[in-house]
């Protein structure tokens, strides 16, 4: 890389920027792992036949693990899929519209068919 003479300032700029975002990517990974472990732990705890030390009930567990999934998805969208970078207005609109229709479909089916 150093053999090219006319790219020095671009490389410096890139180095600074990629160092910064690498940290955010590792952070997103750690957070995703932690949220996943919490979800599995909660469900493992609820279905534990012993249940003497059950920390939670399903009434709390169901919305909570759903929330954890949404938080994890948002972090991955923003950092891993670079939504935090400039020029992502149309992508954000596209994915938000898709997400909205998907969400509506899920809510409608669950509501009409009862759960």
């Amino acid at each position: 890389m150093a053999s090219h003479s006319n790219e020095s300032h671009a490389v410096d700029y890139k180095k600074a920027k990629s160092k910064h975002s690498a940290k955010l990517h590792y952070l997103t990974f750690s957070l995703s792992m932690i949220l996943t472990v919490i979800s599995f732990y909660i469900v493992g705890n609820i279905i534990d036949p012993a249940r003497e030390y059950a920390i939670t009930s399903w009434t709390f567990g169901l919305p909570f693990i759903t929330l954890l999934a949404i938080v994890q998805a948002l972090f991955q969208l923003i950092f891993w899929m670079h939504m935090n970078e400039k020029g992502h207005l149309f992508p954000a609109m596209g994915i938000a519209l898709g997400g909205f229709i998907a969400f509506t479909a899920v809510i409608a089916t669950v509501y009409w068919l009862g759960w």
Binding site: G94, A96, L97, G98, A102, A105, V106, V110, W115
Partner: peptide, 27 residues
């Protein structure tokens, strides 16, 4: 890039419908 994001929006709709079907039929 922009076209691909629109495609991912469409993919969300696809998976949303599959999730809805699954949840509706469960039980």
């Amino acid at each position: 890039l922009m076209g691909f994001w629109l495609f991912l929006g469409g993919e969300s709709v696809l998976f949303g419908c599959l999730f809805a079907t699954f949840l509706g039929l469960r039980g």
